[in-house]
Design a protein around this nucleic acid. Structure first.
Lengths: 223, 223
DNA sequence: TATATAATTTAGTCATGACTAAATTAATTT
DNA sequence: AAATTAATTTAGTCATGACTAAATTATATA
């Protein structure tokens, strides 16, 4: 069995390499809120376990074995998030933190039971895909909200799950995965987005928009 | 926050001192499956935290603060056991092991939600009392099955929760808390008990009987 | 009471996984 | 190309919580 720390490293490497290939020591350190020297130490251990590939000064990548473990942990995490949300009513801005602790100790048996209870779901409450037991992830294509222009309508596909305050903010506009909205105005000079959600207007800043991913983008006339 | 190890020590001390006042280093070591020298080390730490009282060579006792924490962990454990059993259908011989890991990471919020889901229960699947949020335990008086004699009838009140094989064995006779049975025969020379459970006969060895506690004991004529 | 045995504690070791400070390597400027 | 800056690695430290081996204290026996 791997330690909790090792599991967290693998999961983080997976997430970071999703958007950008090799993962540098510094980025990983920042992501894990740990000093770079500590990362170097753990990478060495993971390397002897053949879970990562690493050349000095060149960044890390997961091996197939490491990737399999990372996906298993991510599956735990996302199933737990959805279970806490649906079965226990934990608010969506709280499920991440809770799942972060539970994901390392939950048994396969309990996980299977939660999976069945939920009807074998494919997405967590933030719209992220839940890998299946074989580590297959079906990712629906989506674009960052910052790519949108005036008059386009779309549907929220996915939002970042790790910033509780951000999620509460989005919740106040009902900006959940599945929610449709239309861009009324994009302010110039990297300004905020004014959008229409079911008749309600909301102003979404650039920094927030970066964490929202959408699909079903369509040009619309002013309604 | 306490470490997981410290929490386990407090919980174990609580359980052991329930039946026998001060807890010796050796007993605690055996219970935790750890060497006595390691126990001495942890006791020192717990003492500096004022969670236990300890005089060299004289055994440990929990302070009020230590007892409060122990009861909190036990509450977590037993609520989790019942939740896993009722909400997820985990078999009763598996819930202990699972709860053992979860009890250290579950939040108060999630615990409260499970408590509400279960309707604020007072007993876990093995008949052990669930302490309330203030650490109050209501223990129903019960006697070990080994105290029973020929012809007595009773109801199962509580069974040990930590031996999975034993629980499966009891389950095969439907010997759950709440199950009534009558003693047909106690074999002489510390022999086994032959009992009648809803018309079905079963033979229960002495070692097994030690782990079964009963109440509502009544003399009955042969029916 | 002296001695043997059992229980407990002390002292020192080990693996984890964090840290700091210093050294090394890579990338950017001038 | 040399020098500066940034990133990474090495080396050594620390707290946890386990361990073994040896020393100490308590208990039981002759």
């Amino acid at each position: 069995m791997l330690t909790q720390a090792a599991e967290d490293y693998l999961k983080s490497i997976y997430k970071l390499q999703e958007k950008g290939g090799k993962v540098s020591t510094g980025i990983l350190a920042e992501y894990l809120d740990v000093k770079p020297a500590s990362v170097t130490g753990m990478i060495k251990k993971l390397k002897t376990m053949k879970l990562v590939s690493h050349e000095r000064y060149q960044g890390v990548t997961l091996t197939d074995a490491g990737k399999a473990i990372a996906l298993e942990i991510i599956r735990h995490h996302r199933l737990l998030e959805l279970y806490l949300f649906k079965a226990l009513g934990v608010p969506w801005d709280g499920v991440h933190e809770e799942a972060e602790k539970l994901e390392h100790v939950i048994s396969e048996d309990v996980e299977d039971r939660m999976d069945a209870f939920l009807g074998y779901p494919t997405e967590d409450p933030h719209g992220s895909p839940i890998p299946d037991k074989n580590g297959v992830v079906l990712k629906t294509p989506s674009v960052p909200m910052t790519d949108l222009n005036n008059g386009q309508s779309c549907v929220v596909a996915e939002v970042s799950d790790d910033d509780s305050a951000l999620l509460r903010h989005l919740g106040s506009f009902s900006l959940y995965p599945g929610t449709a909205f239309r861009v009324i105005k994009v302010a110039p000079f990297e300004g905020p987005f004014t959008i229409d959600i079911a008749g309600q207007q909301a102003v979404i800043g650039r920094e927030v928009a970066k964490h929202i991913f959408v699909n079903n983008v369509e040009e619309t006339d002013n309604v």
